[in-house]
Amino acid sequence: MELKMLTSLTRGQPGVLHNCTKSLVAFEYTRGAPRKPHTLLFVGGLGDGLGSVDYLGDIVRALEPTEWTVFSLVLSSSYGGWGMGRLGKDIDELAQCVQYIREYKTPQFGAGKVVIMGHSTGSQDVLHYLNCPNPRPPHPVFDKSWTPIIRTPVDGAIMQAPVSDREGILWVLKCGTERDSPAAMRNLYNNAVEDARRATYEDDDTVDTIVPISVTARIGYPASAPVSSRRFLSLVSPDSPEKPEEDDLFSSDLSDEQLRQTFGMVDARGLLNQKLMVLYSGRDQSVPPWVDKEALLLRWRTALDNGGDRQLWDPRSMVVPNASHALSDSDQAEPRRILVERVTAFLDDIQRA
């Protein structure tokens, strides 16, 4: 059984539950009612929900004496909803929460700072928020009666554990599992991709089909979460690196030109007022051993800063030594200390700027 460090979240944490919209909620971690004009808005990864990322408790505690509060957003794709979700809808909901926070806090404190932070797939949401056209392009199936949402700029952004789902799956295929050999895994994967491509939608192409859970569970996804053919193809991105799908933002084999279309578009979109900080886990269980993490961060920095007139990469960005994916293992005290130190210093700079 995994031993987890006791955090303020596991002990229970007071705060305020906000209805950002009728169906979208966020929890603000706050003790009492001190003056808190600035906001760190946190988005978890696949399968995450309120309080499921342990290190967030360390950040909440560190920010208690400051003028920052932490909002944790519960997306429609949170918990088991990720398999039916998509980045486009995520950033719409993120935009609604950013707008809500500004409208909620400004009358009380004046204009405050808002920083968005993503863990794992939450990092994909952060980058998609910053680099996607504004408003985003509509989805041909699900956005026929959709009202475009204009995203407002944020003051800073943090990506923690921005890993490639596709490379994680490729590693499973290469190594196999206790149940399946690499050859059996590859056959299972190829059949799943072929079936998903052949029948991505049903009912006159208006409804998602579902990849059999018996298949997705053997590939490595939780057996408790249904995964649509559409999201499966986006995550595994079978035509990459030549033609990456929406979710394939962080793979190490993407070309410099492809990175210019993602990281390199951030400055042009004008949705990041100050800096982007990336904290990559040095011992991330989801990253194959062939990925050179330091080299990958350098390529991202080059694409981001060469994409416009401003230098948007924060120099505190780093590969955190010995850090696991979510910094939840029993030996993660030092990686978590580094993470909290970097995040609080980053927010301090954002506040002073």
Rank of each mutant, 00 (worst) to 15 (best):
D331C: 06
R198H: 07
L259N: 08
R336H: 00
T30K: 10
Y79C: 12
A303L: 02
R260F: 08
V287R: 05
D329T: 10
D155L: 02
A345E: 14
D331L: 08
A33L: 09
Q332R: 04
L271M: 11
I210M: 10
Q160L: 04
V278N: 08
Q99A: 09
M159R: 00
G156T: 03
L304T: 01
T302D: 11
A333V: 09
L271A: 09
V227Y: 03
G32D: 11
R102P: 05
G308M: 01
H325E: 00
P65F: 03
R218E: 07
G45K: 01
N306W: 04
Q274V: 11
A223N: 06
T200A: 12
D125H: 01
R352A: 10
C132K: 08
L347G: 03
Q96A: 11
I101V: 15
S224M: 05
R186S: 06
L41P: 02
E67N: 14
D292R: 07
Y280Q: 09
P133C: 10
Y104E: 15
Q124H: 06
K105L: 13
E202Y: 04
L173E: 01
V154Y: 05
G220Y: 01
A196H: 07
L276R: 07
Q285H: 03
V163K: 04
S23A: 08
M185V: 06
S281G: 09
S78R: 02
R35D: 15
P107C: 15
D125S: 08
L75K: 09
D329Y: 02
S181K: 05
V266L: 00
H18A: 14
L235V: 12
P222Y: 04
S237A: 01
L127A: 03
M265L: 11
D205G: 08
E67T: 15
R230E: 07
Q285K: 02
R186W: 01
E167A: 07
E194K: 10
W290I: 12
H18E: 13
T30Q: 12
G51T: 12
G264S: 14
G118Y: 00
D125E: 11
L271N: 05
S317N: 07
S328F: 02
T302W: 03
K174L: 05
V60T: 13
D256K: 03
L254C: 12
G156D: 03
T177N: 04
M277T: 01
R218C: 06
E64V: 13
V16F: 06
Q124F: 02
L254N: 13
S255F: 01
M318F: 01
S224L: 08
R35S: 14
W146L: 11
P135K: 11
A217Q: 06
P288L: 09
Q258L: 13
A295C: 10
L188P: 00
E257Q: 13
V320E: 12
Y29P: 07
G110F: 10
S52H: 05
L17E: 15
V126P: 00
G118C: 01
L75T: 15
T302G: 06
P133S: 12
P137L: 12
S77Y: 04
P321M: 10
D253T: 15
N131C: 10
T262H: 02
D48K: 01
V141G: 08
S120D: 04
T152S: 13
D195P: 03
Q13I: 11
D143I: 08
Y201G: 15
V74Q: 12
F263T: 15
R316W: 03
P153I: 15
R151A: 14
A26D: 05
G15A: 11
